[in-house]
Design a protein around this nucleic acid. Sequence first.
DNA 1: AAAACGGGGTT
DNA 2: AACCCAGTTTT
Length: 351
Amino acid sequence: MDKRYFSDKVVEWYQTRKRNLPWRDTQDPYKIWLSEIILQQTRVAQGLPYYLRFIEKFPTVQALAAASEQEVLRLWQGLGYYTRARNLHKCAKEVVARFQGVFPDNFQTLKTLPGIGDYTAAAIASFAFRESVAVVDGNVFRVLSRIFGIDTEINSPEGKKVFAALANELISAKKPDQHNQAIMEFGALYCTPGKPECPECTFIGTCFAAKNELQGVLPVKTKAKAARPRYFYYYVIRKGKSMLMKKRDQKDIWHGLYDFYVVEKVKPANPVKLMAQDPLLKKFNPDDVTVSKKYKHVLSHQIIHATFITLAEQKSQASGADGLKYYSSQKISDLPKPVLISRFLEDYQLL
DNA sequence: AAAACGGGGTT
DNA sequence: AACCCAGTTTT
């Protein structure tokens, strides 16, 4: 397909079919940045309520920078990829400290901020400052590979180069913002991964994939390797109406968030035998142990095998040291916590 | 260059 | 239950 034809048509399509979203029709880099961070790996429907809550609580980058990390994590709760929230907060503080609270207005400088990579820098630079630099996200990979018939693997270093070069060749110098938005919106609404809306599509006669029935093949991607299994043994220790929670402090998934007391193993283990080796758990009577529930939680690159073990109440056990805290059942729902736990919490009530 | 990082949707 | 989806940082 002719490149110029595609660029013009897709922008035309966008102007008539685009969704109205609160971060569009603004040039405030703060709002654009916030929306882009939230929308990384997140669908609009899921991210929208978070965006609205963040803007309400932190209307400016200064307000966000002044918050505590815990406040930011709490508002982020349930979105996953908590590193995004930490970087969001770090970035706000840097914008205030390094740039007097004013976002840098170009791709290159934006990229020096935490949490802002190629995609996000291009999005902010083009949407807020009309810099002519192409965004290359999953939608762009998919649309360009199908329309122009490019079978370079999109997750290879080569693919990143090829698609970025093509996207930057296509971009209009006059309306880089609309051009970028148009391809992504087209990919999100029409040229979807599963079953694209080819019968309704304006490119049905010119698209390489449609002409050759290769929608199911393009874009080409190398397959991921098998997920790593992890075995979590959660010891649910109750004290009256309260439960023991531990802050995860290790440099690991969910650090800084709260968990039940957990012992992790690479291979399946016997939860009762595990107790004898643990400084806190060895104080409990193994006869009081009840294995209450088992879960398998499949994620992209991990398979979590979680076993929940309830322990009978003891007189003197865990103290407030070492991130250990008792929380009432009411308060636990307020904790910034791994979604794994929030998902199990309801079931926990049945234990 | 490859791995790590959650969670929801679809099949 | 198996499979799909993605941008940034770290190793």
